[in-house]
């Protein structure tokens, strides 16, 4: 069997470099299979996160040939064969070791978002009646597997490092799911505007392109949230009349 060259980033927060490994690529191999083979046979201490190996848990996020991907859903035979395959950690997050990054910031931000606040049950049996049509809109957002590839690719975080002012696409998807839940009574508009920084998104749609769950992040989550912020916070007539904000 012909060997395929993989260049895997090895290192930690103090620095690192691509190291070359030769892998016997079997039929149907995904990039994660190659990483596992390297780990089992050549580098037992190669650090990588993974769980389900079926695109459902969102653990094995990395940058394959420079693109944010789930390693378990990236077929090796779909990648160009004429050059080595590079596998690097997500660059937007601090390095822990090898392909593992520190994504704890995401968990911290999520905690600050106003939680789900259900209305009183509207049916006699103490539950809610919801129409399938109304449920489907937020269900799109609930497909999110928290792989954080959208966070990784977003230039507001990746290039401008605005982690203290901007929550990132994943969190907007989370907020959209809450805001569009038919029985939620919360209002996260002020928080979106003042703390989560939805205004910093300039709709380049990079997040949508990399989403392995095919969530239409920008069009279906972020833009409607931006509209809510504008609707509730900025009244052009009042501004003309000098009443200012709100």
């Amino acid at each position: 069997m012909a060997k395929t060259e993989f260049q895997v980033w090895r290192g930690d927060s103090s620095g690192g470099e691509l190291q070359s490994y030769q892998v016997d690529v079997g039929p149907g191999y995904v990039v994660l299979d190659a990483i596992h083979q390297i780990q089992a046979e050549q580098a037992n201490d190669l650090a990588v996160r993974w769980n389900c190996k079926a695109g459902k848990c969102g653990s094995c996020s990395a940058e394959v040939n420079g693109s944010p991907r789930l390693m378990c859903m990236t077929r090796v035979d779909d990648l160009p064969k004429d050059k080595p395959i590079t596998v690097e950690p997500m660059r937007t997050f601090p390095s822990v070791k090898d392909l593992v990054t520190d994504v704890s910031w995401n968990y911290e931000v999520k905690k600050t978002i106003q939680r789900f606040m259900p209305s009183k049950p509207d049916a006699a049996d103490g539950t809610w009646r919801m129409d399938q049509y109304d449920v489907e809109r937020p269900q799109e957002f609930r497909k999110c597997i928290e792989c954080f590839l959208c966070q990784d690719v977003c230039h507001v975080l990746r290039d401008h490092h605005m982690h203290d002012r901007f929550a990132g696409p994943r969190m907007f998807v989370y907020v959209a799911n809450l805001e569009m839940n038919p029985i939620d009574t919360g209002n996260r508009v002020a928080q979106l505007r003042d703390e989560l920084g939805v205004g910093y998104c300039n709709i380049t749609k990079c997040c949508t392109k990399v989403c392995p769950e095919h969530i239409t992040i920008t069009d279906n989550a972020i833009i409607p949230l931006k509209e809510r912020v504008v609707d509730q916070s900025y009244d052009p007539i009042a501004k003309l009349l000098g009443a200012g904000k709100e």
Partner: peptide
């Protein structure tokens, strides 16, 4: 299972709007 809905779960519906 019903409790999950009060915590934000959105399960598929019957035509009359129940789970």
């Amino acid at each position: 299972v019903r409790e999950l809905e009060s915590w934000g779960a959105l399960l598929d519906r019957t035509p009359d709007g129940r789970m």
